[in-house]
Design a protein around this nucleic acid. Structure first.
Lengths: 233, 233
DNA sequence: ATCGGAGTATGATAAATGTCATATTTAAAA
DNA sequence: TTTTAAATATGACATTTATCATACTCCGAT
């Protein structure tokens, strides 16, 4: 009994459970979850899994920021999505029974929990609310991806940069000195908007001169959110 | 009894059932399906649903070809996906409980069946194989969308055009005169690859001169698939 | 505190793509 | 068959973006 309570608490108090499909789990299921999960610490720059790897489960992000990316033929690392606390990683390839299509790496130190495939499938088959939640998460990802696709096809690099800076600000917030909390290199930022690193740097310079942003060393401060929004359309 | 058999046949013999998540349904469920579905004929150019509409169900494509697209601020219609016989439309927004993010229009005359949301949700909650199939379909769409995103971000218009022509050929096949079966206007083709109509026309001209394709009026014949594949990388 | 390398910045130039104007062709309607 | 509007094609040019070269700057390791 003591043990069960202990095990349960391990997941029961985790913030992630309030945010993901996992919120649909009942007490019994949470105990099952707590007993099968494994926790990992991932240092900035390290990989959680690599493209082509078979993961056999999903990773739950407890803390930190990660990027999902794919190395393209020309050697550029295209960032498809950033993930933060409360998101699941590797759901898609697990459900499709395929090796990972993307690599997952830490952009800031991360804490993640690994949940084996068998657990997820069990919850999926026995808890309608859970399966619906999971389904909705994937649908949300799909919508976002489709909208990104449209932006990539129709907006200029400048617009996409403005949009991405606003996204980073809205999603990950700022430090006390107003700089963006996610600290991506210029190369990573270029990889998010789909452009060359130099083009990205050049446009940041332009934005700086126009006082839309301020460059504090390698960090970025958004100075004129309204104008950035207008620029992004 | 006579009636039940009749109703059942209506969906039981439909090819679509062999291709979609619907293949997991049992006899009883197929009868339920047959009794609740509505069949529509959509003429080329007509809409099945428009962006922002609440559909309250999914559309099953029995025949023909459709496009999912979104009108962007600059007035261009970005095509996100083409659908053919055996695919479901509107699953995403139905599951997310949101108005449609995209418009669905016929590119060639279509036959579609509408299945009300209540039916789908019922199958989802009571048939694990169905819910898993549906989930896998959405995951497949997500993977495709992510890969499209990478292509848009990293490939040139020329590469994307080659890639798209190969996709149209592989997915929809050719007529007896070797021309592509899907007949998109140059504007639609431009909308698929995310470029200006004139750029698309110009590149088609180039491909024609290089004997990679042949332009037969408004129709297109792929003449050198190998070279196109190489071009697309 | 200094050094060295990665990351950032900027210039010069080339290449890709968009835009606007205008001609030509196609296919459907009269 | 002729007519006509829409679609396709092409030229001229502007703009955007990539590429290559080089310089600068930050920050951690020594």
């Amino acid at each position: 009994m003591q043990e069960i309570l202990f095990a349960m608490n391990k997941c029961d108090q985790c913030i992630v459970r309030q945010l993901t499909s996992l919120k649909a789990l009942n007490k019994e299921e949470v105990i099952k979850l707590a007993n099968s999960k494994t926790t990992y610490s991932i240092k900035k720059g390290e990989a959680i899994f690599e493209e082509g790897e078979i993961t056999n489960g999903v990773f739950c992000v407890k803390d930190g920021i990660g990027k999902l990316s794919k190395l393209s033929a020309n050697g550029k690392d295209q960032i498809v999505k950033l993930v933060k606390s409360g998101e699941l990683l590797g759901q898609r390839s697990m459900i499709s029974n395929e090796p990972a299509n993307l690599s997952a790496k830490a952009v800031a130190d991360m804490e993640v929990c690994f949940i084996p495939k068998a657990e997820i499938i069990h919850f999926f088959n026995n808890n309608n609310q859970f399966s619906m939640n999971l389904m909705q998460t994937v649908c949300e990802d799909l919508k976002e991806s489709e909208n990104d696709k449209i932006a990539l096809a129709q907006k200029t690099v400048k617009q996409r940069l403005a949009e991405t800076l606003l996204y980073l600000h809205a999603t990950f917030g700022e430090n006390t000195d107003k700089t963006l909390k996610v600290q991506l290199t210029r190369e990573e930022l270029a990889g998010m908007i789909g452009t060359a690193t130099e083009s990205c740097i050049r446009l940041l310079s332009d934005f700086n001169k126009l006082e839309l942003i301020e460059l504090v060393g390698k960090k970025i401060v958004l100075k004129n959110v309204k104008a950035l929004k207008k620029l992004a359309e």
